[in-house]
Amino acid sequence: MPDADVMKFLQTRRSHPARSLFAPWPGRDDLEPLLVAAARSPDHGKLEPWRFVVLQQGAMARLAALVRERGAALGHDQAAQDKAASLYENSGLAVVVVSSPVASAKIPVIEQTYSAGAVSLALLNAALAAGWGANWISGWASHDRGFVEAGFGLSGHEHVAGIIHIGTATAVPPERPRPDMARITSWLRD
């Protein structure tokens, strides 16, 4: 049976800018149902090729300092360092969705990576549906091996699929242009 409310939510959902998210942040009891919803994403072969790293407020200052350290080591200018560090300095809670592929003769790594992306979107939508403000942001630091291994504890075969910042929204998210469906959709009949 169609659920008009769910369809309306999916067709009108908007992410909140991370800089507009403040306390109160979701607690563990608030966050766990969102993680359960996200983990119901498509997962061919039932491999669970992803995991979560919950970044709580106490970890954010350490991560911001590590971003600045890695940014300087990589030669990023001060503006790039400041922008990346601000994602942690100004946030009280984020969930890192880690793509953690599993050896499989049947399920290619690319499909496992897609599953981690689906988990990221499902977590974002679950947070928004639960009434939180949320934003999916990554940035250069999330692709730097030194940062993700020291900051998030990733293994060599793992990558960041997404970082979902969740908090209390203090502003209505801005509208943005949406895709022209006729331009991006092909209908094949034969």
Results as ranks from 00 to 15, higher is better:
Arg13Met: 10
Asp190Ala: 09
Gly151Leu: 03
Ser104Leu: 02
Pro42Phe: 09
Gly27His: 03
Val67Pro: 02
Gln78Ala: 15
Ala37Trp: 06
Val109Lys: 13
Ala182Lys: 10
Ala18Leu: 14
Ala130Phe: 04
Ser115Asp: 07
Ala18Ile: 10
His165Asp: 01
Ala23Val: 05
Arg189Gly: 07
Arg178Thr: 09
Pro24His: 05
Val6Asn: 04
Ala118Cys: 13
Pro26Trp: 00
Leu55Gln: 09
Pro33Ser: 09
His44Tyr: 06
Asp43Ile: 07
Ala73Pro: 02
Ala134Tyr: 04
Leu31His: 00
Thr170Val: 12
Asn125Tyr: 12
Pro108Asp: 08
His157Cys: 11
Arg40Lys: 14
Pro26Lys: 00
Leu31Asp: 01
Arg28Phe: 04
Asn90Glu: 15
Lys106Glu: 15
Asp29Gly: 06
Ala85Tyr: 01
Leu21His: 02
Leu55Met: 13
Val98Gln: 03
Ala61Asn: 13
Arg19His: 12
Gln56Leu: 11
Ser186Phe: 05
Ser15Thr: 11
Arg19Asn: 09
Ser100Tyr: 04
Glu158Ile: 04
Leu55His: 01
Asp30Leu: 03
Gly75Trp: 03
Gly131Thr: 06
Ala84Tyr: 00
Ile163Thr: 14
Asp29Leu: 03
Tyr88Leu: 13
Asn135His: 15
Ala85Asp: 11
Glu89Ile: 08
Asp144Gln: 11
Leu93Thr: 06
Ile164Ala: 05
Arg189Met: 08
Val97Thr: 08
Met181Ser: 06
Leu87Asn: 10
Pro173Lys: 08
Phe147Leu: 08
His44Pro: 01
Val109Cys: 01
Ile110Thr: 03
Leu154Ala: 09
His44Val: 06
Asp144Glu: 14
Ala105Trp: 08
Val148Gly: 01
Ile184Cys: 09
Ser138Phe: 03
Gln112His: 05
Ala4Ile: 08
Leu55Cys: 07
Val98Met: 08
Lys46Arg: 10
Gly131Leu: 02
Lys8Ser: 13
Ala105Ile: 06
Phe9Asp: 10
Ile184Met: 14
Thr170Phe: 00
Asp5Val: 01
Glu158Thr: 11
Val98Ile: 13
Gly27Lys: 11
Ala37Ser: 14
Leu55Asp: 01
Ser91Cys: 10
Ser104Tyr: 07
Trp132Met: 00
Gly151Ile: 04
Thr170Glu: 09
Met181Ile: 13
Asn125Cys: 12
Ala23Ser: 14
Pro2Asn: 15
Phe152Tyr: 12
Ser91Ala: 15
Gly27Leu: 07
Trp132Ala: 03
Gly92Val: 05
Gly92Thr: 03
Ile166Cys: 03
